[in-house]
Design a protein around this nucleic acid. Structure first.
Lengths: 218, 218
DNA sequence: TATAAAAGTTAGGCAAGACTAACAAAATAA
DNA sequence: TTATTTTGTTAGTCTTGCCTAACTTTTATA
């Protein structure tokens, strides 16, 4: 049996490696910071996860998910994103509200429920934040997307995902009138700080480079 | 904050008092047996619940839910039954499958989700087992119903609820071709052991008194 | 009413998951 | 290459929720 806490560690490892970085290993402090616990706690847990053959790591070495650990992590991600989609499409939740509740729902144990949920939602491929939903076999469709900061001046693009999922960030995104599939035109880019002038629904805004890094477009 | 375990204790107390018995108090051993833990554990928990003003009880005395405790218990029951209805009506779960998963879902913390779920299900009044679903204010509609054992010979009644929710029992009920709203005719009753002969869908069966006690009809 | 049975309580312990404080190893910089 | 900073580890402690074993109170029965 994998506890809820263990599931969260596996999910965090998955995010830090395969999702955020394009690496396959992570460090103790990095994981501790991400999970908002102390490194000592991570250490304790790593011993347990290693014992269960969910991660592989040696003292003072890097942490890697095993096949078994990765499979569980992907299944949690799958559930999380299906539930987010459910909340957004069927329960009238907004972009910024879905995450917190999905964090709870992702731990519900029922294979049948996940399967039925997927059918009910008509096999969605991306969640409300634009992230890909793994299928039942754990396969994740790679999305060809770039950050808004990389778009050339003059080009128009379509918002497909956001990187940072914090409520404050999502609310700011919404305030600009941006939603999934919104068209964004890049008007100009300031060389000295990388900030970008964009046009959304005929309104012009200037946003920071950091903000631009957090929006994925095609 | 009320932990998941605390919620389960409150719910159990509610069942043992207001629901199963027509009393307002329960004992330590009774609660322990219901929750499948040892009396000592119940004792520990009672101290905590008393501290939080969720139950009132004195050493060697009976346990009662406070207003605050009862409100929380009813809210959990409400969530449980709404989720059961959701699983049954939208997720293609059977009668006997819903309970286990609803036990998990009832602890999800989101007022908005409960509200939306209720709207989505079009304000159901009873769950798939025929039990009443408390409304947002915590009011529970009393159902005028009697057990099958109390029905007079020759009368026809309609199944509205089951008392025992165990999987084995529910599967037996289903095997007889019984479902919510099934018509049941009481053909005869054996005096010596109270067993009842019934007719369902033109099929005759003989069932025990105990079985009859577990079916509620109108 | 004395006594046995049932019900309830206490003390002490254990596992999970977190923490602090002190320490050890590795990586980086002088 | 030594010194310093960063990263990772260990030991000991805390809380929650459970346990067993021993004890006390209450209730039921002879």
């Amino acid at each position: 049996m994998v506890s809820q806490t263990e599931e969260n560690y596996l999910k965090a490892l998955f995010h830090l490696t395969y999702e955020i970085g394009q690496k396959t290993e992570a460090g103790t402090n990095e994981l501790a910071e991400f999970l908002e616990v102390k490194p000592a706690s991570v250490n304790d847990m790593l011993k347990k996860l290693k014992e269960k053959d969910l991660v592989s790591y040696e003292k003072y070495g890097k942490i890697t998910l095993t096949k078994k650990g990765k499979d569980i992590a992907v299944e949690i991600v799958r559930k999380h994103r299906l539930w987010e989609t459910f909340l957004y499409k069927k329960m009238d939740f907004t972009w910024d509200e879905v995450h917190e509740v999905a964090e709870q729902l992702e731990h519900i144990k029922s294979q049948k429920l996940v399967k039925q949920l997927e059918i009910f939602l008509d096999f969605p491929e991306i969640d409300p934040h634009g992230d890909p939903i793994p299928n039942e076999k754990g396969e994740i469709k790679k999305l060809a997307r770039i950050s808004l900061s990389e778009v050339n001046v003059g080009n128009v693009c379509r918002l497909v995902a956001v990187k940072d999922g914090s409520v404050a960030f999502l609310q700011y995104v919404a305030k600009l009138g941006l939603d999934l599939n919104s068209k964004i035109k890049v008007i100009s880019r300031l060389e000295f700080d990388g900030s970008i002038e964009i046009e959304v629904n005929n309104q012009r805004y200037t946003v920071s480079q950091k903000f631009g890094n957090n929006l994925f477009v095609v």
